[in-house]
Design a protein around this nucleic acid. Structure first.
Lengths: 232, 232
DNA sequence: TTATATACTAAACACTTGTTCAATCAGCAG
DNA sequence: CTGCTGATTGAACAAGTGTTTAGTATATAA
């Protein structure tokens, strides 16, 4: 009874305002009154449509997940997660609210954050397996763990985007859309692309010394609680 | 089960309770009354000692930063950030509150989070420069950006630790210390160490195709807003 | 037309929030 | 002892919170 038809109704306006506010201020800091004001309705109507603030959150979770899931499946061929971010660059600001919402969900204890992370990992794993078969990606022993690491590294740019901008001085100044939403600016992504791909192509260490040392340490140290030489 | 000694002053007890609660529930969700209850004092005394809830937060920021800064400078020689996490593994649960606090600070808009991230980047950069000189780390063109990427990747395990556990099924079950605090369990780190070091040693891609393509795309595309082929 | 159901608002309710305040209590200087 | 200062509390306050409720408008169906 819902979905596309009601998507232009008051209910959808409330939900979109909630997505924007939850993403910007977090779920607990954003108030029902602020959502109502942004949507141009009364606070009571928000409860009337969604039952409670928690119900509103679940509706937001569901909508954002459905939207990003359809987006993700469309562009899941050559590269991996960063393709989604790149797509966001070509349509700047369009998905800003949803992205900020996901960033908050990943940090909070949220079902939507869990589902999103798992979806990214699964998608990454599929890409790695296809890349291995095509010869473009190295043949890893533990594909699952590798996918988790790649997904974690990629999503780190989303979660820590604000810090990346600041640490590199690529901040376009206060008041910018990127610094407001914490998103990644095109300039920042351009600056980080080559160094990241360099590591992903030629590695970070000059040789296999650290890897061999860690492998030995872990083999000689399987049952004990000691786990030394994890670096970096 | 509070920390080791009751030798602390009341002010310190309040601050430690606040660090634990702010880290577990976030600043806005944690209430002054809950902090007071955990510290065994009245809500008014919290305000008496710290002026306001915001003052309490700044005291927590200052204390956690001072503690982690001294910790960081002690172990800043061979490896990088993960050395800090590894040290945390050898002393399980001891720094759990501070780590959860930092994880929350990195996600929220917090001065402590900014300072911590910048400190990790600076420390990582120093390690990279030393490694380049020693020949253990590859000679990167843009050391700063590389340091930011490495720091981001490392801190991602902190921020996204809960998702890593779940996606790998290494969760030691609900009620565990790791799943409560969102920290990284020793098992999880052991499982991720070799795949991560494998990427950091031999790279992720099988050859330089993606890197070359991205370099060409960025050179031919300097002034425009288009920025294609960032992968993965 | 009436009747019914729904969208919607304004106001109030019950509760929690951070904070204040007067009043104790303990230690210490004179 | 008195007097003073800071720690500490219990109660209260003002503002904000999510939610409820009574009531109004609107539209659709009979």
């Amino acid at each position: 009874m819902r979905s596309t038809v009601e998507d232009l109704t008051t209910r959808a306006r409330i939900r979109d305002a909630a997505i924007a506010l939850f993403g910007r201020d977090g779920f607990s800091r954003a108030t029902v009154r602020a959502v109502a004001a942004d949507a141009g309705v009364s606070p009571g109507l928000v409860i009337h449509h969604f039952g409670s603030k928690e119900g509103l959150r679940q509706a937001c979770d569901q909508h954002v997940l459905a939207q990003t899931a359809s987006q993700g499946k469309e562009k899941a061929d050559p590269s991996s997660t960063r393709h989604l971010i790149q797509d966001y660059l070509n349509h700047p600001g369009q998905y800003a609210d949803e992205i900020a919402y996901i960033r908050r969900s990943l940090g909070d204890e949220s079902d939507a954050g869990n589902a999103f992370f798992d979806a990214v990992v699964d998608q990454t794993q599929g890409i790695i397996e296809a890349g291995i078969e095509a010869g473009t990606i190295r043949d890893f022993e533990d594909v699952r763990s590798t996918a988790v690491i790649i997904a974690s590294n990629s999503l780190a740019m989303l979660v820590l985007g604000r810090h990346l901008s600041r640490a590199l001085g690529t901040d376009s100044g206060p008041g910018t859309d990127a610094s407001e939403t914490g998103g990644i600016s095109p300039d920042l992504l351009r600056q980080l692309t080559l160094p990241a791909l360099d590591i992903y192509t030629h590695g970070f260490y000059a040789d296999a010394r650290f890897l061999d040392a860690a492998r030995d340490a872990l083999q000689h140290n399987n049952a004990t609680t000691q786990g030394r030489e994890h670096a970096p």
